[in-house]
Structures are given as C-alpha cells and as structure tokens.
C-alpha cells in the first residue's frame, strides 16, 4: 500500500487538483450557468499565490488564501457583468475571460515571468493538506445537493421562471455561483502551483477548459461524485493506456466521445439509472417499505440522475 502510494503520489496529486478544477466548473453548471470562468480563476489563483510567495515572501498559506480570495472576487465581479447571459453566449464570455487571464500572464513582464512563467514557488504543501482542503470543498458542495438547498438549485437550473414564482432569488443564486466557482478555481490553482512549484501561461489555457469539461461529461454533471469519477478516469487513463503508446490520445478521444454520446448523465448517471431500474423492477409492490426513510428531505431522499447541461457541453 505504501509502495503503491509512493509510486503514484504524483498521479494522486493530479487527481485531486483536477477534481478541484472540475468542481469549480460543475457548480455553475448545476445552477444552469454555463460558465468556464473557474478555469481562468485557476490561473488567477495560481499566479497570485506564486507571485505572493516568490516576490513578496508571503508564507505558503497566506499566498494560497490571497490567490483564492482574489480569484473569488474577480469571478464575482465578472458574474455581476455577465450573469444575465445564458447558454453559448455566457460560455463564450467566460472562455474569453479565461483566455484574457492567459494573455495577461504571458505579457505580465517580470511580475508573471512572461511565456516561461514562474519557477521556484515550492510551498510547504503536502498531499494530505490538499486532501483536507478538497474534503472541505466536497462537503460544502455535497450539502448543496441535498434537502431544500438542493431542490432550489435544481429549480434554478431546470426552470428559472418557476424558481422566481416560488420566491427564489434566481439572480442572487446566479451571482453567488460565480463567487463560489471563483473561490474553488482559485484554490485549485493556488494549491496546484505551490505544490508543483511552477506555473506557465501554457498550463492555464484553453486545454484546461477541455479537461474540466471532459471530467464532468465522463463522470456526470449532477453531483460532486460525478466529478470525482471523471477526475479519476481522466488522470488515470493515460497511465492505464500507456501500453498503447502512440495510440493513447486517439483512444482517449474515443472514450470521451463515447461518454458524451452514450452517457448523457455520465458514469454516475448510468449507475443511478441502473440502481433505480433495479429498485423499481424488484419492488413493484408498495414503495412504502422505504417510506420512513424517504419521507424527509434530508440526504436519504432519492436523488435520481439528471441530464441537464452536458448535452450543450458536448456540442462544444
């Protein structure tokens, strides 16, 4: 076990970083907000933490905090401007935001290190630290999937007009999701950078949007669990596929395409569908047996798969 961990420590690290990044995109998608700003925030968080750490001699955690908060604030301000956009237009506006971050990083002179980026920003972060931060984020997101908060978020996504008629402040939900997405993306960037000691403009470019979307499409967009499944698949697939050598990118592409076509709810959606089918198949008799369990609106309430935005994502 310890040998296995030592051998795969870097991949585990990458899995956690990828998961954090994917969560920053998944949260807005769950609210029906088609925003990729979380990726730009990854860059903001990473660069801010690296600059604070190397040029202002700030400690590891103050640097991480600064990167996280700055990314959150900038993303919130972006949200104030663009939250009324929807669909492709919002997607384009937030991709533009992400590209602008990369351009600023490239042209930031000695501050950002230009095209070669920043080196030597090795903070005192261990995998355990990342795991703890990740757990905090995941618990927060998991809470937002259940009970009345989860229902309200679902309504904001599925039918904003209905949400308003039920008294939900949809505009506020949409703006707050930019803040949360920015914080998570910024945290992901700051932690990843100080863990790996470098960040370059090439790392925070459009391909990162593709990675985050791929994770969500493969795993499922409805729950953090889907993002976890997707992150594991995406980071471990190249390792598993290493035996096919040069064919790896092609096979990787096929896996993603097949997931987009045949698993509209991702792997998680497939599993939930199968579980529901088994339940309804075996128990056409009264579902009253689990009535006591499901009669509250807590975490035990049935949580079926949803297939909302990824069809849009697949089109991109």
């Amino acid at each position: 076990m310890i040998d296995w961990y030592a051998a795969n420590s870097v991949v585990i690290q990458a899995t956690m970083a990828t998961l954090l990044l994917a969560l920053s995109i998944q949260l807005p998608l769950r609210m029906g907000v088609f925003s990729f700003a979380g990726v730009g925030c990854f860059g903001i968080g990473g660069y801010t933490a690296a600059i604070a750490f190397t040029q202002f001699d700030m400690g590891t955690w103050p640097s991480v905090a600064l990167g996280t908060v700055l990314a959150g604030v900038l993303c919130y301000l972006l949200g104030l401007i663009v939250h009324k956009l929807t669909g492709l237009y919002l997607g384009m506006a937030t991709i533009a935001f992400t590209l602008i971050v990369a351009v600023v990083a490239t042209n930031g002179g000695s501050m950002t290190g230009g095209a070669s980026g920043i080196f030597g920003a090795l903070g005192g972060i261990t995998n355990l630290h990342v795991l703890i931060l990740l757990a905090v984020v995941v618990v927060g997101l998991a809470v937002s999937e259940y009970g009345r908060f989860g229902r309200k978020i679902d309504t904001v996504r599925e039918d904003p007009e209905l949400a308003v008629a039920l008294g939900i402040n949809v505009a506020r939900y949409r703006k707050m999701t930019f803040l949360a997405s920015g914080l998570i993306g910024g945290l992901a960037g700051a932690v990843t950078t100080l863990l790996r000691s470098t960040i370059t403009p090439a790392e925070i470019n459009f391909h990162l949007v593709v990675v985050a979307l791929t994770v969500i499409i493969i795993g499922g967009s409805s729950s953090w669990l889907g993002a976890l499944i997707g992150a594991v698949v995406i980071t471990w697939l190249p390792t598993v596929l290493s035996f096919v050598a040069d064919w790896e990118p092609i096979i990787y592409g096929f896996v993603v395409a097949l997931a987009a076509i045949f698993l509209p709810g991702g792997v998680l959606g497939l599993v939930k569908d199968l579980m529901r089918r088994r339940r309804s198949g075996s128990g056409t008799a009264p579902p009253a047996s689990d009535a006591a369990v499901t009669s509250n609106d807590g975490p035990t309430a049935p949580e079926p798969s949803r297939t909302p935005v990824p069809s849009q994502g697949g089109a991109l």
Binding site: R148, R151, K152, D154, T155, E158, D159, E161, L162, A163, V164, A165, L166, G167, I168, N169, V170, T294, S295, D297, A301, P302, P304, S305, R306
Partner: peptide, 30 residues
C-alpha cells in the same frame, strides 16, 4: 418578481411545471 410570493401571491402555470427528477413530496415542499 421573486418577492411577490413572499407577499402571499402564488400561481400555477398554463403548462404544468414540475421537477421531473424529484419526488411528488419534494415538488410540493418546493
């Protein structure tokens, strides 16, 4: 518009609008 329900005005829609992935109880709880 979202403040109107808080004043005590509720509405139903011409076409039924429910969350299909949630139970009837959860839809009513909404």
């Amino acid at each position: 518009a979202h403040l109107v329900p808080h004043r005590g005005i509720a509405r139903t829609f011409q076409t039924v609008r429910l969350l299909e992935e949630r139970t009837v109880l959860e839809n009513v709880l909404l």
